[in-house]
Simulated assay, not measured.
Amino acid sequence: MTVIRKPTLIKQQRDENTLILWLRVDAEIEDFKGHFPQFALLPGVTQIDWAVYYAQQFFDSPKSFQSMEVIKFQEPILKEALVKLTLTWHADKQKLNFSYTSGQDDEVRTHSSGRILLG
């Protein structure tokens, strides 16, 4: 039995220091288990883990987690959600800005955002 820990990557767009990933948050992701059985939602620690993981994959950012700043969890991410993860890497400061959003145009919802110090 395969344990699923990451979402399905649907599409990606990248420039020098910004990465945008469109993700499907599959219902089978292990992190949903036990996180509110009656109302499963994606844990905040998982959202942070994914942001760091993709930064390391695409920007070759440092592997060492130092701290977090201005982390906000505003709206739950539920099973089978389609979300956009935007990552901006500031190599000079060793800081990763992230945000998870969904929707389009005037109905964009922010699920979470913040800054992570790596290095």
Rank of each mutant, 00 (worst) to 15 (best):
N17P: 01
D60F: 05
G44L: 06
K79L: 12
L21C: 05
F32V: 01
F36K: 10
K33A: 11
L9V: 15
R109M: 02
D26Y: 03
G34Q: 08
F65T: 04
D105M: 01
P76S: 14
K79G: 05
I29R: 05
T86A: 08
G103A: 09
D106G: 02
Q38F: 02
Q104E: 14
E30H: 13
L23Q: 02
M68N: 06
L82I: 11
L21S: 07
M68L: 13
G119T: 06
K6D: 11
T46I: 11
K11R: 12
P76I: 08
P7M: 08
Q74Y: 03
F32Q: 01
K6T: 11
Q47G: 06
I20L: 07
V70W: 02
Q74W: 04
D49K: 13
T86L: 04
E69I: 03
F59C: 06
W50D: 00
E69G: 11
E16M: 06
E16T: 12
F59L: 05
L41N: 06
S61L: 03
E80R: 04
S67L: 06
D49R: 13
V70S: 15
K95H: 15
L78E: 04
K11Y: 03
Y100N: 05
L23A: 07
R5A: 09
V52Y: 09
E69S: 14
T8I: 14
E69M: 08
E107Y: 02
K33V: 11
N17R: 14
I71F: 06
D60K: 15
S112C: 14
P76V: 07
F73P: 02
T101P: 01
A81M: 06
D31H: 09
S64T: 14
W89H: 05
F39G: 08
V45F: 06
T88E: 14
F32G: 02
Q66V: 10
K11F: 02
D15I: 07
D105I: 00
F39Y: 13
S102L: 01
Q13P: 01
T8F: 12
F73T: 05
V25T: 06
D92N: 13
G119Q: 14
K84I: 01
T86M: 05
V83I: 13
M1K: 12
R14A: 14
D31K: 01
T88F: 01
G119H: 11
L87K: 05
K33E: 13
G103W: 01
D106E: 12
R115P: 00
I71E: 07
T46P: 00
G114H: 09
D106I: 01
R109P: 00
I10G: 05
W50G: 00
S61Q: 08
D60H: 14
Q94N: 15
Q38A: 14
Q94C: 08
P62R: 09
F98S: 09
T8Y: 12
K79V: 07
V3W: 05
T46R: 06
Q94T: 11
D15K: 10
S113L: 15
V3A: 12
I20C: 09
K72L: 08
E75H: 13
E75I: 03
F59N: 04
K84P: 00
T110I: 10
T8L: 15
D49H: 13
